[in-house]
């Protein structure tokens, strides 16, 4: 699903990835709202179901990493065909952020990242802050026996939690991603919620722990320990949108800057159909629908027997 801004001239493209196994709209329509807000301020946005998620069937016999790489190659090819070569910004929550990091580590056209609960290294004082958090919390001290019992029980359970299946970027991926962005004067906006407190407990930790000169200048971190991982409260979602829009507005001139290659196809019609090749024709089965911040219309998806739905609404 593509959302197109009023002014296409040099507009960067934001690609929004699925979180976990969720549909591209995301819980509470997060990706939909982010797309529309960013399109209103001048970004082309595209929401995509990677293979095995939402409306895209899984690839067989490929690892997640291989599958994401194949999907990305196809996405880039389609984007270049539709919009010409443009600067790319990737958006992802949780495993979506993982995929964004892995791609940015490899792809030089990625100039921006908006990450919600990405992985982060722990700095030297992380443990100290964690211990201080426990001993200064009366609630935690009073319930320490429950906490220990819970931990012991967990150790003996063989339960598979969805969060344990996360295919996190490696240390090298994270290094390469940050180095590439520093080198290219990219921009990172990283949000850390309640979910991230297991490995992140102070604003600035992400940039500091990477020990990479220049990273702190391009990386904006937001630490919201009261906010739930999926932004289940509307007020929190509104704050998230506000912060993303603020960052997007501030960095748009940078993304549109001199280094941007001129748009080869500035006046494409609003309706967009993505390209399909032999390996990925199933990836976009159904309708490729596009929208504009100014237009109104409903979204629907058709499945026809023995026929790929090709209609565009």
């Amino acid at each position: 699903m593509v959302t197109i801004p009023d002014d296409m001239e040099g507009a960067p493209v934001v690609v929004l990835f699925n979180a976990g196994l969720l549909h591209r709209a995301e819980p509470y329509r997060m990706n939909v709202l982010v797309s529309r807000h960013l399109a209103q301020i001048g970004y082309i946005t595209i929401r995509i179901d990677l293979s095995g998620k939402g409306d895209t069937p899984a690839r067989s016999q490929t690892s997640n990493r291989e599958s994401v790489a194949l999907d990305w190659a196809f996405i880039k090819k389609s984007l270049e065909h539709e919009f010409g070569k443009r600067k790319l910004v990737l958006f992802g929550l949780c495993s979506g952020a993982d995929n964004a990091i892995k791609i940015a580590a490899q792809d030089e056209d990625v100039l921006g990242l908006i990450l919600l609960d990405p992985i982060s290294r722990q700095d030297e004082s992380f443990k100290l802050r964690q211990i201080r958090g426990v001993i200064t919390s009366l609630y935690k001290l009073r319930n320490i026996h429950r906490m220990l019992r819970h931990r012991l029980m967990k150790r003996h359970q063989s339960t598979v939690f969805a969060s344990n299946l996360r295919d996190e970027p490696t240390r090298d991926d994270l290094n390469d991603c940050c180095q590439n962005l520093v080198k290219r004067q990219g921009r990172i906006l990283a949000f850390f919620s309640d979910f991230a407190t297991k490995y992140y407990n102070q604003q600035g930790q992400f940039g500091r722990s990477m020990r990479l000169e220049g990273l702190e200048h391009i990386c904006e971190e937001v630490y919201w320990p009261r906010v739930e991982h999926l932004y289940s409260v509307q007020v929190h979602r509104d704050r998230l949108m506000g912060r993303i829009v603020q960052w997007g507005k501030g960095n748009l001139p940078h993304f549109k800057g001199a280094a941007v290659i001129a748009d080869e196809k500035p006046n494409k019609p609003i309706q967009v159909r993505l390209l399909a090749d032999e390996n990925t024709s199933i990836a976009f089965r159904g309708l490729a629908v596009s929208e504009s911040p100014r237009s109104a219309g409903d979204s629907c998806m058709a499945s026809k027997p023995a026929l790929e739905a090709k209609a565009t609404l």
């Binding site: 591209r24 709209a25 939909v32 929208e291 409903d298 979204s299 058709a302 499945s303 026809k304 027997p305």
Partner: peptide
Amino acid sequence: MSELAISCADQGVHVLRFDCFGTGESHGL
């Protein structure tokens, strides 16, 4: 729902899924 739609289509049934106004990927709040 995607799996369901594909399964029905495989059995020869046309399926249309949609999001009502203000929900999912449809317009509005």
